[in-house]
């Protein structure tokens, strides 16, 4: 697994994917839908899939002395690694906003969603959607990128809309908590995001391995 991950990082990945990890810093932008950061990170990963396809990466990988399922696992490992790196960046931004910047007026007067632990959980949910709809969808054919990405983008923006709306619904204001307020709820929502991310990714991985085994290249 280590070798296939190194192959993904050094041969298959587009440099722009690494650059797009920095979009996690959008969690610091006030008055901006912060979850778009998660979408941009996945857009960066999409570029790697695109450049890998142009480089005949899938056939190259299948011809290596590894199981076909390892090719799929390698892609998922790469995707998860990039997502988790960006999550660390987002986490740092959230930590700043929950501590030294918690009383900053630009954040307190922000009509849009606050970047707190719930936002991190929501970002994980969007990454899970990417892994489930796009990465899983890609392995139906191992060449078609456009259709699964359009479906993913639609689901991601719909989710962003829902997440942005939640704290405006009476009774749900606590999801937009500042600092360490409602910390129990915040942590619970982050844990829910983690569980959904893991569930969607593992489910997609299993389906992708099965599909990839069946297709002709």
């Amino acid at each position: 697994m280590r070798n296939i991950l190194i192959k993904e990082l050094r041969l298959s990945a587009s440099p722009i994917t690494y650059f797009f990890i920095a979009f996690g810093l959008m969690f610091l932008i006030p008055g901006y839908p912060v979850l778009c950061a998660a979408f941009f990170v996945t857009l960066g990963i999409f570029f790697s899939f695109q450049s890998a396809r142009e480089a005949n990466d899938i056939v190259f990988s299948v011809l290596l002395p590894i199981a076909k399922s390892s090719v799929v696992k390698g892609k998922f490992l790469f995707v998860c690694l990039i997502e988790l790196c960006s999550l660390v960046v987002m986490g740092l931004a959230v930590a700043l906003r929950m501590t030294v910047l918690q009383n900053s007026p630009v954040y307190l007067e922000n009509a849009l969603m606050n970047a707190n632990l719930f936002a991190l959980g929501a970002a994980l949910f969007i990454f899970g959607l990417f892994n489930w709809i796009f990465v899983g969808g890609f392995f139906k054919t191992a060449y078609q990128l456009g259709r699964p990405f359009v479906w993913y983008a639609a689901a991601a923006f719909l989710s962003i809309g829902v997440f942005e709306t939640l704290h405006h619904i009476p009774g749900l204001e606590a999801v937009n908590a500042f600092g360490t307020k409602h910390i129990g709820l915040q942590m619970l929502l982050l844990a829910a995001g983690m569980a959904l991310y893991a569930g969607m990714t593992l489910l997609s991985l299993q389906t992708a391995c099965r599909r990839f085994e069946r297709i002709d290249l």
Binding site: N3, K7, L11, A55, N56, D57, V59, F60, I66
Partner: peptide, 21 residues
Amino acid sequence: TLNWYPRKKIRDIAAIVRRFY
């Protein structure tokens, strides 16, 4: 007819391939 990683150096491609054998 197929060629792999058209923009990667031969040295880099070989460095990856050697890991698998």
